Amino acid sequence: MLVLEFVSTVRATRSGLLDTLSDVEGMTGWGRAHAAELGLTAAFTATEDLWREVVELRQAVRALLAKAVAPGPASSADADRLPGFAESLDLVNAAALAAPLAPRLDWPAEGAPVATSVPAGERGESPRVRAALARSAIELLAGPAREQLRACPAPRCVLYFVKEHSRQEWCSVGCGNRARAARHYHQHKSR
């Protein structure tokens, strides 16, 4: 899910938080890795403005995810530094509208017609990128997967994930192992 990959550009490592989008070069690399989903070419190069706008959008989306997992705890990465809910909601909605989509009918010579969505009018890269990211966030938050959205409770983990089965507690096997190891350590340390 694009929105979860987007908000996971902030993640924990052993040495602290790592922000994949910490600079323009990071945004360029991440944009190229997700070019198809964002409507970019393989030669995409981020600008300073696009980078700032995308990072601002990421914080707004993280604020909405934090509200969606409530009353459970939000991600510890930035729970104390997130923008307000109303401001975040407005920003995500405005970003989604910045590059509206229109249906287009494609009808190959040897096949059935297929409907695709294309940008309605010419838009720059920043509105297209932000609109794709905002639409992905809206689809998650307004869809049935929202009920399964969780912040990973593992020590030092700052990721959000969609719970895929009833016994899933963590975002990954690695986080589950770290959580069990930490629990085991604390149980045996107090003896």
Score class of each variant (00 low, 15 high):
residue 144 P to G: 13
residue 153 P to R: 09
residue 130 R to E: 11
residue 135 R to T: 05
residue 136 S to D: 15
residue 161 F to D: 02
residue 147 E to Y: 04
residue 151 A to R: 02
residue 160 Y to A: 03
residue 145 A to K: 14
residue 149 L to Q: 07
residue 136 S to M: 06
residue 159 L to T: 12
residue 135 R to H: 09
residue 153 P to A: 08
residue 134 A to G: 02
residue 157 C to Q: 01
residue 149 L to T: 08
residue 136 S to K: 04
residue 140 L to D: 12
residue 168 Q to T: 08
residue 138 I to E: 00
residue 137 A to M: 12
residue 132 A to D: 00
residue 138 I to D: 01
residue 155 P to F: 09
residue 164 E to Y: 05
residue 168 Q to H: 09
residue 137 A to Y: 12
residue 130 R to A: 14
residue 149 L to V: 08
residue 143 G to W: 00
residue 143 G to N: 00
residue 155 P to I: 08
residue 154 A to R: 08
residue 157 C to L: 04
residue 155 P to E: 14
residue 165 H to C: 06
residue 149 L to M: 11
residue 164 E to P: 05
residue 161 F to R: 01
residue 138 I to C: 01
residue 157 C to N: 02
residue 139 E to T: 15
residue 146 R to K: 14
residue 133 L to G: 04
residue 168 Q to F: 09
residue 151 A to P: 01
residue 161 F to N: 01
residue 133 L to R: 02
residue 146 R to D: 03
residue 141 L to M: 10
residue 167 R to L: 14
residue 155 P to Q: 05
residue 136 S to H: 06
residue 140 L to E: 11
residue 163 K to P: 06
residue 141 L to Q: 10
residue 148 Q to P: 04
residue 155 P to A: 13
residue 164 E to A: 15
residue 143 G to Q: 01
residue 158 V to H: 05
residue 140 L to T: 12
residue 137 A to T: 13
residue 162 V to S: 05
residue 161 F to S: 02
residue 159 L to H: 14
residue 148 Q to T: 09
residue 154 A to P: 10
residue 165 H to Y: 14
residue 135 R to Q: 11
residue 166 S to M: 07
residue 150 R to Q: 00
residue 142 A to W: 03
residue 159 L to V: 10
residue 154 A to K: 08
residue 136 S to A: 15
residue 163 K to G: 08
residue 134 A to M: 00
residue 136 S to N: 07
residue 141 L to A: 12
residue 164 E to H: 11
residue 153 P to G: 05
residue 167 R to K: 15
residue 151 A to V: 04
residue 133 L to A: 03
residue 135 R to I: 07
residue 160 Y to D: 02
residue 158 V to E: 03
residue 166 S to W: 06
residue 167 R to P: 06
residue 137 A to S: 12
residue 153 P to T: 06
residue 148 Q to D: 13
residue 134 A to D: 02
residue 145 A to S: 15
residue 134 A to E: 00
residue 154 A to M: 08
residue 137 A to F: 13
residue 136 S to W: 05
residue 159 L to N: 13
residue 158 V to G: 06
residue 148 Q to I: 04
residue 138 I to P: 00
residue 156 R to A: 15
residue 167 R to S: 13
residue 135 R to L: 10
residue 147 E to S: 14
residue 165 H to V: 07
residue 135 R to N: 07
residue 163 K to T: 09
residue 144 P to I: 07
residue 141 L to H: 11
residue 133 L to P: 02
residue 165 H to M: 05
residue 146 R to E: 10
residue 148 Q to V: 04
residue 141 L to P: 08
residue 132 A to W: 02
residue 165 H to A: 10
residue 156 R to Q: 14
residue 139 E to Q: 15
residue 159 L to P: 02
residue 166 S to D: 15
residue 149 L to H: 10
residue 134 A to F: 00
residue 159 L to D: 10
residue 163 K to W: 08
residue 146 R to S: 05
residue 145 A to Y: 06
residue 138 I to H: 00
residue 160 Y to Q: 03
residue 130 R to H: 05
residue 130 R to F: 07
residue 163 K to F: 09
residue 160 Y to R: 05
residue 166 S to T: 13
residue 155 P to G: 06
residue 147 E to R: 13
residue 156 R to W: 07
residue 161 F to V: 02
residue 133 L to W: 04
residue 162 V to I: 10
residue 140 L to F: 13
residue 151 A to I: 03
residue 130 R to I: 03
residue 163 K to M: 09
residue 155 P to N: 08
residue 159 L to A: 13
residue 168 Q to S: 07
